[in-house]
Design a protein around this nucleic acid. Structure first.
Lengths: 227, 227
DNA sequence: CGACGCATTGACAGGGCTCAATTTAAGTGG
DNA sequence: CCACTTAAATTGAGCCCTGTCAATGCGTCG
């Protein structure tokens, strides 16, 4: 495992490779099959997790039915920061998207890591603040913008987190259904379907079942800014 | 200034009164008139602030017009945590609601405070996570619930942050207009007005210009859960 | 008292959710 | 390899919530 490729919300930012090995050795590595649930919303938060490979989907539920996807957590990112605090519950559920490897750390291990590695606490604050800012923006968007604009933004956001270039096109490299994109955007699968169909006709996206390719990212960006 | 009355998102949690004095002396106290803007969204974040008296309103703007109220910051709470991180901008604007006194801390002062007082870093993480969770829930609500339900929730949330009992009734003890409540809820001032009128007829609330009294909190709670 | 900002109320239209019916694609097992 | 099953996606029709716009009323302050 390398530090290369991690992004600004990385748990291991400013941590050397050897320190990193030390840290990981303090936790317990687990492998999850696609769809496996790592923890449930509302359960007492005992462990934090860092994703090594694959991807976690964080969701929260509303009484009866509706759910939203809060975020996808990729390699190097931390899930369930709450576990460092005593007596809290997980505010969201985490489910593996595709085969996923994670390291789990107990609360006291996390506290020890924070104490041993000063940058880690700052990383956690930075990370929490980034997510807070992102949620605030999504909140503003869901209020101020039309659905189609928000779907475009969602696609771009997911693309940034999990996009894979191939030529001019960008493939979202994990299976994502209309329903999930709807849950992430705050709309219904019907509207997402209609919208993607329209964009497909314009040549902006291509989609097979469960796979989405963004054929013209530029057009999408323009669409979010403009009109 | 006393520690009493502060809540769980308090910056000074687990800090003794004498330590607290030491900390405050490291910052610069400022007094703001009602409506004064402490910092603007997008400006480079140089200082964090703790509210001593009064209240700050945190807003973010969408291109042209629409704005949302992210949160009200009361005594003992921290605003602009981002300032501890290098090279970030304020993600929101802060405006004083009523006469407000704050202490401002430069980045390096904040870093020193964190280093000198270990609980502070954890408090900041706790605080950021609480706000993140709150935003996530608001995001879910704006998607899943009808406006009236959300208005009820907003009132209850604001009541929790700034409510003042008098008998069975609860007064929100700072001036809040229909427009602001709408910005906080993610709706329009018209809908808020209509809704409050209806509730006034039912005896759930009383409202004078700029003041809101919740006459029957219980009914509102039932309304948010049930319906 | 005049003027300005806040609040109320009505009429109207439209975005997008809901529901129902099909079509398409992907597995599965014989 | 094909029939069968099941999940995902598409598409159409209708309607309701709530945002928009306009007109009016009311409180407060200079």
């Amino acid at each position: 495992m390398k530090t290369a490729g991690f992004n600004e919300s990385d748990f291991f930012l400013d941590i050397s490779t050897t320190q990193l090995d030390q840290i990981i050795r303090q936790g317990k590595v687990r492998e999850l099959k696609s769809g496996a649930v790592l923890f449930h919303q509302g359960d007492p938060a005992t462990q934090s997790f860092v994703v090594l490979e694959g991807r976690l989907k964080l969701c929260i539920l509303h009484e009866l039915g509706k759910e939203i996807v809060v975020r996808y957590i990729g390699p190097g990112e931390l899930a369930a920061m709450v576990a460092v605090l005593e007596g809290q519950n997980y505010p969201a559920s985490a489910e593996a998207v595709g085969l996923t490897r994670v390291v789990g750390f107990e609360r006291r291990t996390m506290l020890k890591i924070i104490a041993d590695h000063p940058p880690v606490a700052l990383n956690m604050i930075r990370n929490a603040l980034n997510r807070l800012e992102e949620m605030q923006n999504r909140y503003l968007e869901i209020y101020a913008e039309q659905v189609e604009q928000r779907i475009a933004r969602s696609l771009l956001r997911i693309m940034k987190q999990a996009g894979k270039r191939s030529g001019d096109e960008i493939l979202i490299d994990f299976p994502i259904t209309r329903q999930e994109l709807a849950d992430y955007t705050g709309t219904t699968l019907y509207t997402v379907s209609r919208t993607l169909s329209a964009w497909q006709k314009k040549g902006w996206v291509k989609s097979k079942r469960g796979r989405i390719i963004i054929a013209n990212p530029h057009a999408l960006v323009l669409f979010t800014e403009n009109f």
